[in-house]
Amino acid sequence: MTKLDGSDADRDHSESLETPSEGAVDDPQATAVEREPLTFDREDIRAGLLTCLPVAIGVGGYGIAFGMLARQAGLSVAEATLMSATVIAGAAQIVAMELWTDPLPVAAIVLTTLAINLRYSLMGAALGPWFERLSPRQSYGSLLVMADENWALTMRELKSGSGRGAFLLGSGIAIWCCWVGATIIGATAGGVIGDPARYGIDFVLAAVFIALAVELWDGRSTLVPWLVALVTAIVAATFVPGRWYILLGGLAAAAVEVIRYDQ
């Protein structure tokens, strides 16, 4: 993959000396400046799909876990598949399976889904400098298949100046296919497997998030917000009901970062 590195010369605020291969996920300074021409064509979709494929296969492991958990929670294969096909939000779906008891706590499930997925609105906003130059149909359509993994790849792609406007769509299609396909496999197998703890399936969610954290680590500047998030989440988890500690931890870190910005 060639990176056109000409357009990001003026980063006034950051001390980060980033290499192209890592940490390019969340550099706020780079988003406002670029005005390279943006395309939205079949070639972009292809590039996104192929780049994302290895990652999408990794997401598939996660989909298998979701399918198994869904079957154990009492969903049918059809219901689990429908959820993966329309919700397309791994963490929220797996957390929902933890909440999935009889009678269904509908409000808790929907609100927790909202809380966990609120990050998508920030991720979508981060795509704004590029996506506002697409037609509403192109931009909103692409956002429907946005997940953590293809968002990160797309940010890296767009920041490199390639101008591939349909990269999110292409990479999202790869994620969607693997996610839905793996859900079917996991849900079909999940009816057979007995105790998930015995096979380490219960550790999948944590393992995925640990891997994501390693990817999101952006050098020492990440340390303070992450410590704030960690401490806030652990304290809030003991005092606040439900899964709200997730949102609280994230918001506390963001608040501290806003205060720290000048320093």
């Binding site: 550099d27 704004g128 992450w226 960690l230 806030t232 506390a252 870190a253 608040a255």
Partner: peptide, 30 residues
């Protein structure tokens, strides 16, 4: 929302730490 309101660089810096921070907030208690 972003197309209708102006977001300062300061706020953007805060928002950019959110994905990582939320991942950590999920992981910590777990």
């Amino acid at each position: 929302l972003l197309r209708r309101i102006e977001v300062s660089e300061r706020l953007e810096a805060g928002l950019s730490v959110l994905p990582g921070a939320i991942v950590i907030a999920i992981l910590g208690p777990e």
